[in-house]
């Protein structure tokens, strides 16, 4: 997919507004996982606004999006509202009334394809969906966002073996590497690198990008979209809490808990810049 630099820049700018609106909402909801949402935001923004993902309710036509790192599922909501899949009233009432929206995604939320929250399931489910689609000659993409934390789950590697063996190239894997677990950095505890080599050893084609550089994100997404025969993974180096001064690269940005009004003001100020 060819997108001009001008359009990429517009998408980045549009994303800033969406992100600010989203965090205004989060300041109402006062729960969730801001650090993880901010690490994956730019990629999700590019996916939706760049037209990489076909959004809608008909799963025979539209793509599947599995936010396997389910604690970041809320990043999808603004885009699903824009597309009319999630009712605007649910978005408006979230945090102040009755709404279908939750911090973790679940199948009761329109446009959320898979219930998530426990880690390590997304790739296996994606493999099942892609396999069934192949049986039925349904040609849609299955996007899966996983976190590096999910690489600690054995089921992730079981699924990688399986989808690689079956050459499920309709599965587009996006790996968010923000190098922050709740209790520290992977390299200080149970190291994960070299992730690229591990993926290639599993017979995936891999590219590694800066997950906040839009030119690189678009190049990476184009890489995913042009898979032929072998599944591809885009490994994105990201920054947890990206864009909020006191959150960036901080493990404590994982949770909303502890964010008082002063901090919420800083969040909105920083994201408005």
């Amino acid at each position: 997919m060819s997108i001009s630099s001008k359009r990429i820049s517009e998408i980045e700018q549009e994303g800033r507004k969406i992100k600010l609106d989203m965090f205004r909402k989060f300041c109402q909801v006062r729960e969730g996982h801001p650090g993880s949402i901010l690490s994956i935001f730019d990629i999700v923004n590019a996916l939706y606004l760049g037209g990489f993902i076909q959004v809608g309710r008909d799963s025979n036509i539209n793509d599947v999006f599995i936010m396997s790192k389910g604690h970041a599922a809320a990043v999808q909501y603004p885009y699903l509202v824009r597309e009319g899949v999630i009712d605007q009233r649910d978005w408006d009432k979230w945090g102040s009334g009755i709404s279908v929206l939750r911090v973790f995604g679940n199948k009761d939320i329109p446009g959320i394809d898979v219930t998530s929250g426990s880690l390590g399931h997304g790739l296996g489910i994606a493999a099942g969906i892609a396999l069934a689609n192949r049986m039925d000659d349904i040609d849609v993409n299955v996007f899966v966002v996983i976190s590096e934390g999910e690489l600690y789950e054995g089921s992730t590697w079981e699924a990688l073996l399986f989808l690689s063996h079956h050459n499920l190239d309709n599965i587009k894997i996006i790996l968010d590497v923000n190098r922050n677990m709740i209790l520290g950095r992977p390299e200080d505890h149970v190291g994960l690198e070299s992730i690229d080599e591990k993926m290639m050893a599993f017979n995936l084609e891999a590219t590694r990008i800066n997950g906040h550089n839009y030119e690189e994100i678009f190049a990476g997404l184009n890489f995913l979209m042009t898979a032929q025969g072998r599944p591809r993974i885009m490994i994105a180096d990201t920054i947890k809490g990206k864009g909020v001064s006191f959150m960036e690269d901080k493990p404590e940005s994982h949770y909303w808990a502890g964010l008082d009004q002063e901090k919420m003001d800083i969040i909105l100020r920083d994201l408005a810049l």
């Binding site: 898979v114 790739l123 489910i125 493999a127 069934a132 079981e158 073996l161 399986f162």
Partner: peptide
């Protein structure tokens, strides 16, 4: 393969597609 956990996840995905 000997991967029961993945088998159940794959089953979930296939069942979601009507299998």
């Amino acid at each position: 393969g000997i991967s029961e956990q993945n088998m159940v996840d794959v089953a979930i995905g296939m069942a979601m597609r009507g299998k």
